[in-house]
Every structure is written in C-alpha cells, then in structure tokens.
Amino acid sequence: MTATAVRPAGPAPSDLPHGVAGMPFAKAINAGLRAALASDDKVLLMGEDIGALGGVFRVTEGLQAEFGEDRVVDTPLAESGIVGTAIGLAMRGYRPVVEIQFDGFIFPAYDQITTQLAKIHFRTAGRIELPVVIRVPFGGGIGAIEHHSESPEALFAHTAGLRVVSPSSPQDAYTMIQEAVASPDPVLFLEPKGRYWEKGDVDLDAPVGVGAAARTLDHAAVVRPGTDVTVVAYGPTVHTALAAAKTAADEDGTSIEVVDLRSVSPVDVPTVVASVKKTGRCVVVHEAPTFHGVGAEIAARVTEECFYALEAPVLRVGGYHAPYPVAKLEHDYLPSVDRVLDAVDRVLAH
C-alpha cells in the first residue's frame, strides 16, 4: 500500500496567517505537528515532558492543551519503552511521533529502533507498516553538558528500513515533519537544536507529499547555485556552508554551490552527482565525526560516479574521532566557516 497523492497542507493554526515572516525554526516544527495532529486522528505525540512543559525546547508547546492527554502523551522516563510502545501503537493503526529529549539519550532505544522498528516491515514481508517518527534534537553549538550535543545519524543511516532526515530551515522543518508523519516508513527526524531560534519565512500552504510524493524525504535541494566547488551539507551545517559560500564570493569571487541533502538515508545521489560533474570539486560538511560518517559514503559515491569529472579528491569537514568535547571546546570541534573555507581552498589548489 503506497499512497502517492499530494494532500493539501493541514488546516492552518488559527493564530497564524498562511504565510509567516520570520518564524522561528522550533515554532515551524510546532506548526507542522499541529497540522499533522489536526489532519489525522491517528497521529499521536509521545515523549518525556512534551505535555504541560511543551518539551525542553518547547517544540510541542500548547499541543497537549489543544489535543488532549491521549494524543499528546507524557510517557514514563524510558526511551526503549517509548519507542517499543510506539511500535505497538503503530501496529494497531496509530501514527506515533516520538520525541527523544536529546541525541545522547537515544541509545537506550537503539535496539528497539534498529532491531524492531527498522526491520518489522521486512520481517513480515510487508504485512506490517510502522509509520513512526522519532524526533531528536541533535547536534551541538549550544554550550551544553555531555550527551546533549551529539550527531548519531550515521549509526541509523547504516540500518536499512529507516529513513533519516534533517531539515535546515523553518520552511523545510514545517514541510518535512508533516511528510515524515505521513510516511508509511519509520523516519528518524533530526532537528538541529542549535538552529531552533533561527527565523525564516514559512508558507503554511506549502504542499505536503504523502508516500512516494513526499519529496523532502529523499530529494536534496540546491540552496545556492555555484560553479567552482560543491559543498554538501545537511541540518545544522547548511547554514555554515551558506555562510562560507557568501564569504568566499565576497572575498575572492569563488563560486560555491551548496547542496542541502535533507535526507542522509537515502541520499539524493543524482543531485549531488549533477552538481559535482559541473564543479569538479566536492567538500562534505557535517558535525558528526568524519570517520565512517555520512561524508565517507558521499565521497565514495562521488568518486565512483564522477571520477572523470573530479579535479581534486573529495574532502570532509566534520567532528573528530573523539567523544564530543566540553562546551568550552566545542567550537574547535564543530565545522566552522573557516574550516569549510580551508577545505575549499585545498580542493581548489589541485
């Protein structure tokens, strides 16, 4: 059963006009969740502190008051229990949207996510679909203590059966959360928590694709066209890549094309390949450690598909093969505009 229709966006929240200028990222997710709850009675939110408190980042603010405690559920403090019961609810026809409070707290649920959620559709030869979304505030840059700044996407992208996506703008956040909820497949929805307060214009009438029409779940976006170097990023580092592109253009006229992957599983290979065939150079940027990371997969694929177009080796900019550092050192660990530009210079030197 694969729905391919494009349904209209859910009803607009009564307190917002249809186009909102300068909407914060977290509010855009909130609006997307509200639209999903309003358009389908089977949609449930579950997680720790998501009710009266509205979540530790207030992403679910006001939703329990609007939709009730049976649909916006404060769960016991047990991540495996949250995901495991969400699986059971999905088997019963519900569409749970689960919040894991922080990236570093997802691992108690790792078994349920990778062994059960990802594989039950395959295990049952397609008889059971599990439309479960796992929302995770991820990434660093907020000056937090340990376990609050990690980027575990590669661990999940390595597991077949999961979709792994990350929005980079309020508009994408609004659309992508609704497409994730409508997806018949489980989706790990990684929210760049360091960008929660950034604002962007959001069109609340933007169409929401269901099933195969859910374009944001597997289509990358060229968010800045360019001719000299392709910089591939997703989630929090798209902003960094765009800032680097602007700096490069201003300083010496280097033209960087920025590709926002949106989805790290699957990867929109044709869009990346088309860009690199044009520019001949590629830099991949993510906060996660580069070793065995998403950038390694992109580099291998680009090398295979663009070998004769490449002018330089594919470079990666990301975290180190070390645990996430203390807050006072995180800016040495995270990809910065300078580190991206350094990699751009290195690929241009070839």
Partner: peptide
Amino acid sequence: IYTLVIGSHALHATGYAMGVQR
C-alpha cells in the same frame, strides 16, 4: 510473528494494548 530478541515484544504488546484502549 515470533520475536527472537528476548523481551522486546512485551513493549509492542503494551503499545498495542494502549491502541486498543484508544
């Protein structure tokens, strides 16, 4: 279907039962 990872399905049963309630 059978669950081979010991105890995982106790949570699925509980979630399913929460759905039955709803």
